[in-house]
Design a protein around this nucleic acid. Structure first.
Lengths: 336, 336
DNA sequence: GTGAAAGCGCTAACAT
DNA sequence: ATGTTAGCGCTTTCAC
């Protein structure tokens, strides 16, 4: 609890000199100050610093749901980077609620030096308040139109295409999707990848093969139920995120549908125990924690250089993890 | 970014009056101030407040691993409570590292008004630096000897006993455990419950039926492997946490051991998709998020009453979730 | 390169 | 109940 004044006194210099030393400037009484700091166990107070200088030594991570393993990974990655800096990390959960997100952002924006945000809101709403934000922002996983924030995203289109191409290569022609919220970047990009891949393969997509799951477990469950009840049910399904996959899996389970014999399932994103499911989950994977650390590094760069203009965009690659939830389709009875 | 001075000017009063209004004291010019605040969009600066008053309007949550769904739930619960207060939440991950935990605690302790902590360290180490901490601390899940902090814990002994009794009721007599770190409260309590229940049932526990898994997935995997290689292998295993259960499950999977036919498995704590595994996981469950919200409420109580002495201890109940990973043991060939 | 002094936004102590 | 003043710990002029 020593103050800068005590350090100054102990080192025989003025507070201004200690302050300069703290900021990394060259000072004559270097060693004396260092010793005094050591001896007194001095740590500068972030709030006092911020009060005068406007630097708060704090950043905020704002995620829709810390309980979702994907976001937990992001947060972990971010935290691990900032632990090595003088910046503290505020955590805010928005419960996937756009209004709450806006409220949170407005409340914290004057107290932090930067924000790492995974927007929960639809693009149409965001600009109104994010447009005028004057601290560095790095977007994770989702982009926002109308302003070029730094961002780190996943190659959603490629991932969805890989998933579909894999199903096609297995021989499937009746391929459905449980898609996420179309107003979000991952939502519409994964759907776009799905469509593109099928168009290229010359495989038509009946309207009822596209079901909305809203990125939620319950949505995935309901969507799978609808798919299963179709007169001409699909032989394969691409689920656009982890939560919906859990729901879909439960529906399959409850309806006693054999996977992959009667229906192949592939997911965008793995589950915590994806390999333990039976069948083990075939999926598109990516490096979540890296996405968090990358975002953190981008923010640190902005913080240190104090350059706000130069937006950058990093796209992370995806991989296909082949396990056992996909197989060749059963031969169509029509042709037997 | 209006200041209290501007509000005061706009309302035609002094800053002190506005300050009092902010603190909830009764003031004559109530309405005028409220209007001015509204009009200017004024929000008090937490750092300026803290500088003078010593109240930082910030608390810290310190967990070993935000990626562990159990801790993610805790954090979510805590965040949801403090969202409705003027307090901000700092998040710190300690990577299950006692030294890092100590460093983190020392660094943050002067900048927060309270701490919610799930200790990663062994009790033997902790007191040295936690003993002298002078902000309210609420412990979650693990207790620390040597000082009576408020805490919210789980009835670990009862949970372990329930698990074992269930196995016994099914007819098992060869019951093993994969236990967690014995230096932690949940570690030794769950082991104690295991032993107590078996002693009461008059069932002996050979030394090799007690394997250490260290609360880690890899530990659970190795421990299960050791159990399976025993000449007189157990017919049932109690795994003391979620991570070790995942490891144990993988080992069973890799070794092609049929569950529950050849071996019954019961876990302390559920998995995210515990019901989707095959067999679906039988386990002891508890309300994780509630544990977080309870801890948060306990801290808020301390914060508001500014009473630091009266430690309290809340114990959460556990439930047995019966699914399909446990069954009667195969008849012992010896007796056939 | 250094010190003295002002001031960041707010609360607390002392007046009235 | 209200205003005035000092000061929290620090950074930042501004002199030197």
């Amino acid at each position: 609890m020593a103050t800068i004044g005590e350090v100054a006194q102990d080192a025989g210099v003025s507070v201004a000199t200690v302050s300069r030393f703290l900021r990394g400037q060259s000072v004559r009484s270097n060693d004396a100050i260092r010793q005094a700091i050591q001896k007194l166990g001095y740590q500068p107070s972030p709030e006092a610093r911020g009060l005068r200088s406007g630097v708060h030594y704090a950043i905020a991570v704002v995620v829709p749901d810390i309980t979702n393993p994907f976001f937990a990974d992001i947060v972990k990655g971010v935290e691990s980077v900032f632990r090595k800096t003088p910046y503290r990390v505020f955590l805010h959960n928005t419960d996937e609620d756009g209004d709450l997100e806006e409220a949170v952002l407005q409340e914290i924006v004057k107290g932090v030096d930067g924000i790492i945000l995974t927007p929960a809101t639809e693009p149409a709403k965001v600009p109104t308040y994010l447009k005028h934000i004057d601290v560095p922002v790095v977007l994770v996983d989702r982009e926002i139109p109308g302003r070029d924030f730094d961002c780190v995203v996943t190659d959603n289109i490629k991932g969805a295409e890989m998933a579909v191409n894999y199903l096609v290569s297995l021989g499937h022609r009746k391929i459905a999707t449980i898609r996420g919220t179309q107003a979000t970047t991952p939502g519409h990009q994964r759907y776009q990848g799905f469509r593109d891949a099928l168009r290229l393969a010359d495989i038509p997509v009946p309207e009822e093969y596209v079901q909305d799951g809203n990125f939620r477990e319950s949505g995935g469950y309901q969507a799978m139920l609808r798919l299963l009840s179709l007169a001409d049910a699909p032989t394969a399904v691409f689920s656009a995120n982890n939560l919906m996959t859990i729901g879909a899996f439960k529906a399959l389970h409850d309806m006693r549908v054999r996977v992959p014999e009667r229906l192949s399932l592939i997911s965008f994103d793995d589950l915590e125990v994806g390999e333990l499911l039976s069948p083990a989950l075939t999926c598109i994977t990516r490096d979540d924690i890296k996405q968090g650390t990358l975002a953190a590094h981008m923010l640190v760069a902005q913080l240190e250089k104090r350059e706000f203009g130069m937006a950058r965009r990093v796209m992370l690659d995806v991989q296909l993890m082949t396990r056992n939830s996909c197989s060749k389709p059963l031969p169509d009875p029509e042709f037997q």
